[in-house]
C-alpha cells in the first residue's frame, strides 16, 4: 500500500494537494534514537498504540490479523471500527486498513528505516482517510482541535518521547484534571 510519489522527491503528504481521490493524506517522519527492532516490536503490538495516540481509547485484538479500534471522535463521541493488517515486513513496515463497510474509512502504513551514522531509526507514518462528512466533517474536526494532521504529528512525537525518554512529557502538576 505504498503511497504514490509526487514528481519531486518529497512525499505525497508534503504536497500542497494532499489528497488522493476521496482520501485525505496525512503523515510525518520522525527520527527516534532507538534501534529499528525495538520500535517495530512495540508498534506491531497494536494494544500499545493507545499509550501515545490520545485519540484512541483502546485497540483490542479480534483475530490474528484483526483488531477492534475505539476512537474518541469530536464532541465526546466514540467511533469503533475493525481493522486488518494488510502487510507486514519484519522490522521494516506494517500496513493496515479499516474493513470495508466501517464507519471510518482509513488505511495506514508505518515504516522503519535506519537513520544515517547510528542516529537511530526514521519512522514514517502515512495515513489515508475519508474525512467524516467530507470537507464539512474535516472543518468540524478542526474546530475541536482534533485535526488528523495535527494529531498524527503529536502522536509521533509522543511515540518518540515514550521510546527515547521512557515517558511522555507533561507540564501538568496534578494527576487529576480537576486539580490543575
Amino acid at each position: 500500500m505504498m503511497l504514490e510519489q509526487s514528481e519531486d522527491d518529497a512525499p505525497k503528504r508534503a504536497r500542497r494537494d494532499d489528497r488522493e481521490g476521496e482520501m485525505a493524506v496525512v503523515g510525518r517522519s520522525v527520527t527516534i534514537n532507538r534501534p529499528r527492532v525495538t520500535l517495530f516490536a512495540f508498534w506491531r503490538d497494536f494494544q500499545n498504540l493507545p499509550r501515545f495516540m490520545e485519540a484512541i481509547e483502546k485497540i483490542e485484538p479480534t483475530g490474528p490479523q484483526r483488531s477492534r479500534w475505539t476512537i474518541r471522535a469530536p464532541a465526546g463521541q466514540m467511533v469503533t471500527f475493525e481493522a486488518e493488517v494488510t502487510d507486514v515486513k519484519d522490522n521494516e513496515r506494517i500496513a493496515w486498513r479499516a474493513l470495508p463497510g466501517s464507519q471510518i474509512m482509513t488505511e495506514g502504513t508505518v515504516s522503519f528505516s535506519d537513520a544515517p551514522a547510528g542516529r537511530g531509526t526514521i519512522v514514517t507514518a502515512n495515513i489515508k482517510y475519508q474525512p467524516p462528512g467530507g470537507d464539512l466533517g474535516r472543518l468540524v474536526a478542526k474546530l475541536f482541535m482534533a485535526e488528523p494532521n495535527i494529531q498524527a504529528r503529536h502522536e509521533l512525537k509522543r511515540f518518540k518521547m515514550l521510546m527515547e525518554a521512557g515517558e511522555i512529557a507533561t507540564a501538568d502538576n496534578r494527576k487529576s484534571k480537576e486539580d490543575r
Binding site: N33, G120, R158, K160, M161, E164, A165, A169
Partner: peptide
Amino acid sequence: CGQCFFCQKQQYSACDNSNPAAK
C-alpha cells in the same frame, strides 16, 4: 531528557522530548 540525539551531543537546551507534544 538525556536520551535524544541532542541531549547525547550535550546540546541539552535543544532536547526533543521535554516540551509536551501539543505545546
